[in-house]
């Protein structure tokens, strides 16, 4: 009988800063070649988790197994795990070619192997013509491409991406998303990508995990994670409104929230702001309890003005566990 053994297995990993817990018994696993995205707000422990995996921080407890080997105590340079930062951290005194060739040369590969490796990555990441430039002669997107090429040139067993697109403008970001996914898929390299951008995370991941306050709440397919929020804080992070329904707390999408009547048993609210998003109109409401609600509609009723009293209703909702919702603060 064969036993399934994941490529990366993180078991009850915990970390603390000056005694304050930053990661709380995080466990998950990923398969070879898989692209997993960990989503979470700022300060949720995403970067610390990556740094522990890379060996740049020491966990207080727990184990990390990579390809069946326990790497928890291995120094960073022996783990075979590549890490890309938000800042591409290119060597400023080296050309693009030299940056990419850095790790193959460290690994004492032959000259022709290094050339083949670098040429392949230059082509894969569309860096032809930039080989002799220095980092200060590149745009932000080009620098990130070079950083990924440099990371992949080391032939890491796993690549960790720490919000590498955070400082890239929106149009270029979509293009880079596709290029990065394609490059990693072509090389068959598993990756963990952390971000606070839920759309980026849901778009990119084979699987998505939600990290809050150092705890990994769920890992699943993007559709499953988005369609079935497990808690009020997860629902709010994923863009849902959290309301008290007839049988307990529920999560309601902004486009499923409607104005008028009391069909859904929803609370009274006041229009706080109204604005257009192009095809849609965004309405911000504030309930009597001070909770912020978002409503998106393509057909806004007349008389929608800040200060106008309304009631809200909804046709579709996702039930949430009661205890989570009662303790959670209103979404803002």
């Amino acid at each position: 009988m064969s036993t399934y053994s994941p490529f990366l297995e993180v078991d009850r990993l915990s970390a603390a800063w000056d005694g304050l817990p930053v990661l709380r018994a995080v466990s998950f696993s990923i398969d070879p070649g898989e692209f997993v995205v960990l989503l979470g707000p700022n300060g949720s422990g995403k970067t610390t988790l990556l740094r522990c995996l890379a060996g740049l921080e020491k966990p207080t407890s727990g184990t990390i197994r990579l390809g069946g080997e326990d790497v928890t105590s291995l120094p960073t340079h022996r783990r075979g795990i590549g890490l890309m930062f938000q800042d591409p951290a290119l060597f400023p005194h080296r050309t693009v070619y030299e940056n990419i060739a850095y790790a193959p040369l460290l690994q004492r590969r032959t000259r022709s192997e290094v050339e083949t490796e670098v040429d392949g990555l230059v082509s894969l990441l569309h860096l032809e013509g930039f080989e002799d430039r220095r980092p200060d002669q590149l745009s932000g997107g080009e620098r990130q491409r070079v950083a990924l090429a440099r990371t992949l040139a080391a032939r890491p067993r796993l690549v960790l991406l720490d919000e590498p697109f955070a400082s890239i403008d929106v149009e270029l970001k979509a293009e880079l998303h596709a290029e990065f996914r394609q490059a990693l898929r072509t090389r068959g390299t598993a990756a963990i990508h952390v971000t606070h951008d839920r759309e980026e995370g849901l778009f990119l991941g084979d699987r998505v995990g939600l990290l809050f306050d150092g705890s990994l709440e769920v890992v699943g397919s993007p559709a499953d994670v988005f369609e079935h929020p497990r808690s009020a804080r997860a629902a709010r992070f994923l863009g849902y409104n959290v309301l008290d329904g007839p049988s307990g707390p529920v999560a309601v999408r902004a486009e499923d929230l409607e104005i008028g009547g009391s069909i859904g048993g929803g609370p009274s609210a006041v229009v706080a702001a109204v604005g257009t998003l192009g095809r849609e109109t965004l309405v911000i409401l504030r309930t009597e309890l001070g909770e912020r609600l978002e409503l998106r509609t393509v057909d806004p009723p007349d008389g929608f003005r800040p200060g106008a009293p309304v009631t809200v209703r909804w046709q579709r909702s996702v039930p949430l566990p009661r205890e989570e919702a009662s303790g959670a603060s209103p979404g803002r």
Binding site: A54, G55, L56, P75, T76, H77, R78, R79, G80, I81, G82, L83, F85, D87, A89, F91, Y102, A103, L106, Q107, R150, T151, A154, P156
Partner: peptide
């Protein structure tokens, strides 16, 4: 000196001595 660069050298397989030199 850039700490990010030092960590990058480590994740690319460079030893601490290499990170010092680089």
């Amino acid at each position: 000196a850039s700490v990010e660069l030092e960590e990058t050298v480590a994740t690319l397989g460079g030893t601490p001595a290499r990170a010092y030199r680089e």
